[in-house]
């Protein structure tokens, strides 16, 4: 049944990179233009009536954000992850808040954390977690969080960081100079 559906999706929407992850997760990739149409089709025709979450990954080397829409089918107990790549320098995606009302909260968070724009999504520009944020969106990988923290919040003198592995070597084998062999 799942393979039938996937064949149809390849034909109608040109989905690629289909990966089956047992027991019940299938992911596929679709272009930005076909994305909203595909998700609507899956919800209305194919029984994927539940939106688990919307997530995002920053693939800075490829210059893309990968949006992951995880859908769930209550009848067949199948999860379907729809991957959509959008360009980092033009981060914009069709809003799906008309399909699931809860989507606008995810989109608000994505706008705040990654700076992705969703035209038409309600209350998009409102602060979600960060209040009065004035720098680059913090989950972008080119955002230097250590530098920002040191500048904004300062650094307490006397603070030391220990790598647990090295520290425990010295603690457990002191007379071998931290050599575990």
């Amino acid at each position: 049944m799942m393979s039938e559906l996937l064949d149809r999706l390849v034909r109608d929407f040109g989905v690629t990179d289909i990966t089956e992850r047992p027991p019940a997760i299938t992911t596929l990739k679709v272009s930005k233009e076909n994305g909203e149409r595909l998700i609507r089709e899956l919800r209305d025709r194919e029984g994927f009536t539940h939106l688990n979450f919307i997530a995002c990954t920053d693939w800075i080397e490829d210059g893309i954000f990968r949006l992951i829409y995880m859908l769930h089918n209550y009848d067949s107990k199948q999860n379907l992850g729809v991957h959509i790549d959008i360009k980092r320098d033009h981060a914009e995606m069709t809003s799906i808040h008309t399909l699931w009302a809860q989507a606008w909260t995810y989109q608000r968070e994505l706008r705040e954390m990654y700076g992705i724009h969703f035209p038409g999504s309600p209350r998009l520009e409102e602060d979600f977690c960060l209040e009065g944020w004035d720098a680059m969106p913090p989950m972008r990988r080119d955002f230097d969080t250590a530098k920002y923290s040191a500048e904004r919040f300062g650094h307490r003198e006397g603070r030391v960081s220990l790598v647990p592995r090295d520290h425990m070597k010295v603690q457990l084998y002191p007379n071998r100079g931290g050599d575990e062999s």
Partner: peptide
Amino acid sequence: PANGGMYFDSYNTINQ
């Protein structure tokens, strides 16, 4: 609260 702890480099938690 003393020195940032494990969140010393977080963009959203204060250090002192």
